[in-house]
């Protein structure tokens, strides 16, 4: 054993690359990177297919449509990516989103609160619900699956109670701006898309470049190993659920602004669509693998598929749901095969 310790020499370039990517050029890590990009090939293949089968698919208007269609999901997906990376799940996002929207609309229409205050209350409630799920799950060792399922009933119940079953169509200006406003005139970019992009970007920066982000991955990769290295896994799980509560609240307000009214019942498809899109991007349901970039790709696959089917006039409308399901399964299989994960799982 050599007892003298040499300082390793990294060139300035290597150092910059290492800081940006968390890897060095000199290794086989890039190979690993490429397999994680399998969903990208799926996205490209799908894009080519739909642009060949429908002339309208590639038009800027339509591409813009795809983006705004997945924008709400992108906000949901930001929080969900955090949660799935730790190996947990949040089933309450759709209900929490509905509640946040309803609170904002109710405070605005019936109690005349000022906008910043009601937004803080609405988003704060959503955030608190995520935090409460986290505490309940980590303190009492209840699986997040059950805790967040119960939390979704609580949120949905509160929404019904507040709304008394009525739709509120008088919405705060901020919600309308976020959901259906445009920047730069009537042909400008939708605010919704900007919010989604900022949400994904901030999520990406946190996951990739902070210590907390590292803890999220390590907690998901192996809770026991993370704990042995002194990572507070309970706190990490509580934090990701809190983040997920916040993004669900934000998504709820944005989608309310987009739809033009606060509904007394949540949109259940938000939950399935969000988890579907995140997992399509290659983020593992049991934690440790995935990234915000992959979530973006998953969202685009999902949006492309839904939109592309709409653009092929020969497809029976009543078959669309069925075809979507089949293509999703096919896409998931492609992901698994390309990333070589299937044979690697040798668990008995």
């Amino acid at each position: 054993m050599s007892s003298q310790t040499e300082t390793p020499k990294l060139s300035p370039l290597q150092r910059i690359i290492a800081n940006l990517t968390g890897t060095s050029f000199l290794t086989g890590v890039w190979g690993r990177r490429l397999t994680a990009l399998a969903p990208l090939w799926t996205l490209i293949a799908m894009g080519i297919f739909f642009s060949l089968s429908s002339p309208s698919f590639l038009r800027p208007i339509n591409l813009n449509n795809i983006l705004s269609q997945v924008s709400t999901l992108a906000i949901f997906g930001t929080g969900m990516t955090f949660v799935l990376l730790t190996g947990e799940i949040d089933l309450s996002i759709a209900a929490v989103a509905g509640l946040a929207g309803m609170i904002a609309a109710y405070l605005y229409a019936n109690l005349d609160y000022s906008e910043p205050v009601l937004l803080v209350i609405a988003l704060g409630t959503a955030t608190l619900m995520g935090f409460a799920s986290g505490i309940a799950s980590t303190r009492f060792r209840i699986p997040t699956f059950m805790v967040t399922l119960a939390m979704s009933l609580i949120a949905a119940g509160l929404t019904t109670y507040i709304s008394k079953g009525r739709v509120i169509s008088q919405l705060p200006e901020t919600a309308k701006f976020l959901g259906s406003g445009r920047i730069g005139g009537p042909d400008g970019i939708r605010v919704l898309i900007v919010v989604a992009a900022v949400s994904l970007l901030v999520g990406h920066l946190i996951l990739r470049y902070t210590r907390f982000g590292r803890y999220v991955y390590m907690t998901g990769a192996s809770k026991s190993a993370a704990r042995l290295a002194g990572v507070n896994t309970d706190m990490t799980i509580t934090a990701v659920l809190t983040i997920c509560g916040f993004t669900a609240g934000l998504a709820g307000i944005v989608s309310m602004g987009r739809l033009g009214s606060a509904q007394p019942d949540a949109v259940p498809s938000f939950l399935i669509d969000t988890i579907g899109a995140v997992v399509l991007g290659g983020t593992a349901l049991n934690g440790g693998r995935g990234s915000m970039v992959q979530t973006l790709i998953g969202l685009l696959i999902y949006g492309t598929l839904r939109n592309g089917l709409d653009n092929i006039p020969t497809i029976d409308v009543y078959l669309k749901e069925f075809i979507t399901g089949v293509v999703l399964i096919a896409a998931l299989i492609v992901n698994v095969v390309f990333s070589g994960k299937a044979p690697a799982d040798r668990s008995v």
Binding site: P8, L10, Q14, R15, A18, N19, T21, G22, T23, S24, Y209, T210, R211, F212, R214
Partner: peptide
């Protein structure tokens, strides 16, 4: 708060 892989290395 912000891990720097180069320094970690």
């Amino acid at each position: 708060m912000i891990p720097r892989p180069a320094r970690e290395l």
